[in-house]
Design a protein around this nucleic acid. Structure first.
Lengths: 334, 334
DNA sequence: CTGTTAGCGCCTTCAC
DNA sequence: GTGAAGGCGCTAACAG
């Protein structure tokens, strides 16, 4: 494989000149530039980014550590990050933690070894270990989607407000027994959504019943299990609030299997919309999060930090959710 | 940031010894090993993979170039690749081409610069330029999902057979006017699926009508547009065959909007199943592709090449599809 | 405007 | 079993 020296020799110039042409840094006469470019072409030269990064201490690469690329919410976020990154000449390495703190730490370590310039991270739990690893090495970082007990740049959505709006919507429809199908209890989005639910209840003077709140994983399977369990309890809840899209799908499945009509016999609301490409005829009432924008914003903020164009103190950016009322929610059965 | 020298100094050994401990290469007394490990710990040393890669010429990284991570089919493939890779200590850099040959070439170039050890590539078109770039640099490569006119390792599914099975299924139900909603005409999966469709028609003695075949993009929007156009033609087709999942969703949307009952007034079949986590109550009759297995197999094959454990000639591995009959297909209206 | 030189941090002979 | 030295390919001074 030809190196920069081969190019330099062939073009009859020094290696520094080749480097300058390739990086458009410093002055190069257009005649020399042309000769260099031609040599590059003739040799099929491909610069080695490892060497470049080793020397320049910058890799133009961002690490994106999220929980599950299988979830359309996250793919949408990832596309946002990717678009923001590539607009600024950065590439993105994506890692899935599957909500496992161990995998999270392992991937952060790996990305650190790969010398990424910055991190976008979705913490699997309400812990700070991985974030501290990053900050200890002075690598800029933006936390995505979730709060952690630390002062770091964060971009997330208003879980509390979204949950409040959904619950309020159900209360307005006359529901009084509303079950919450939660994710892991240690994740801020679950906590905040339960909190918003609770605030709406309080405001409406409906007593909070802890037996109506289940905690589990952000998966279809656990959504189905939680829904089934709730629907088998007496008195049966008249509405289900799923804290994420996969849980909602599981709940819908449970309702179908139990032959309960939605929304006639039981209403269902959820978080996160599914793209039209996947659901031709959306049915679920949801609090929709601006996933793509979240990704873009987080990416831009991180790059702003890297380039020194953003120097505010660390801040917690909270994007609004939008209540989208559809056919899965209806009046409470009397 | 501490380097290997700092670790060596602190442990009172040479850098070579530290390297040996870190890579478990060569003999090191367990006492020294312990001292080294302790120094690593105390300093919070993180090896620099750029330097390692520069020196060793291997990055333990694979490039995965696919078309659209927004499509569950591809996320599933990607997870398969990732699992196969991480089982062997490789990480994966994922790039989306959005079916654009230009982006494909740009990303291949970038990954080459990043010195990935191997490529998994989904060609956006029936062209060989990007593949040739890779092979010119003697980097191993596996083509995913699609044929190209070159002898390279390929892992894909039996598009022709799947399409044949779906069409046959519709013919058995009495359909005679079956429209095909295709992707780009230059992509082998589209071509092969039209081919399978045609074979089933021929076999049943149903004349092939080119006006019943539309070509477009693998998106929900074009699926909807193609379906609408087909359904407005006279005589109206009694069944629609969408060559991928997004197109099928678009078609379903068109059918709903035109208030045509499925399958009563029009049947719909497609390619690629959607995960249960996204569709609680699957409705579509499809030829399901083993997406995850495809990813795993391709990943394993690539790594086998890298490690020299696979030395067969380049081969075209074709996985079977499975016909999953559901409620979207029914008898042709009389 | 351009060339020379000194490392970036690591692995890998080669000695000892 | 372990250390010293060279160099992977590149960029960033520093000269000229």
């Amino acid at each position: 494989m030809p190196t920069i020296r081969d190019v330099a020799r062939r073009a009859g110039v020094g290696v520094a000149t080749v480097s300058r042409v390739l990086n458009s840094s410093g002055y190069v006469s257009s005649a020399t530039r042309a000769r260099v470019l031609q040599a590059v072409e003739e040799l099929g030269y491909v610069p080695n980014r490892l060497a470049r990064g080793l020397r320049s201490k910058r890799t133009q690469t961002l690490g994106l550590v999220l929980t599950d690329i299988t979830n359309p919410f996250w793919t949408t976020v990832a596309r946002g990050v990717e678009d923001a990154a590539s607009a600024k000449g950065f590439s993105v390495i994506l890692c899935n933690t599957d909500e496992s703190p161990e995998k999270e730490i392992a991937y952060v370590g790996l990305l650190l070894q790969k010398q990424v310039d910055g991190f976008l991270l979705v913490p699997a739990r309400n812990t700070t270990e991985s974030v501290e690893m990053v900050l200890a090495r002075h690598v800029p970082l933006v936390v995505l989607d979730r709060r952690i007990p630390m002062t770091v740049d964060t971009v997330r959505c208003d879980s509390e407000g979204g949950a409040y709006a959904l619950t309020r919507h159900l209360l307005d429809l006359g529901h009084r027994r509303i079950a919450v199908l939660g994710g892991p209890a240690q994740v801020s989005t679950t906590v905040d959504r339960v909190e918003g639910y609770r605030r709406a209840l309080d405001e409406a003077g409906v007593p909070f019943d802890p037996r109506l709140v289940a905690y589990s994983a952000f998966t279809q399977e656990s959504g189905e299990a939680m829904a089934r369990q709730m629907l088998e309890s007496q008195p049966r809840p008249t509405a289900l609030f799923a804290v994420n899209n996969f849980i909602a799908m599981g709940a819908l499945r449970a309702l179908r299997r139990m032959r309960l009509a939605v929304p006639k016999e039981c209403s269902l609301v959820g978080f996160d919309d599914l793209p039209l490409a996947l659901v031709p005829d959306p049915f679920l009432t949801v609090a929709a999060q601006p996933a793509y924008d979240m990704g873009v914003l987080a990416g831009q903020r991180l790059i702003g930090r890297l380039e020194g164009t953003i120097t505010d103190p660390q801040s917690d950016i909270v994007l609004p959710t939008e209540l989208v009322v559809r056919r899965s929610s209806g009046p409470a059965p009397s």
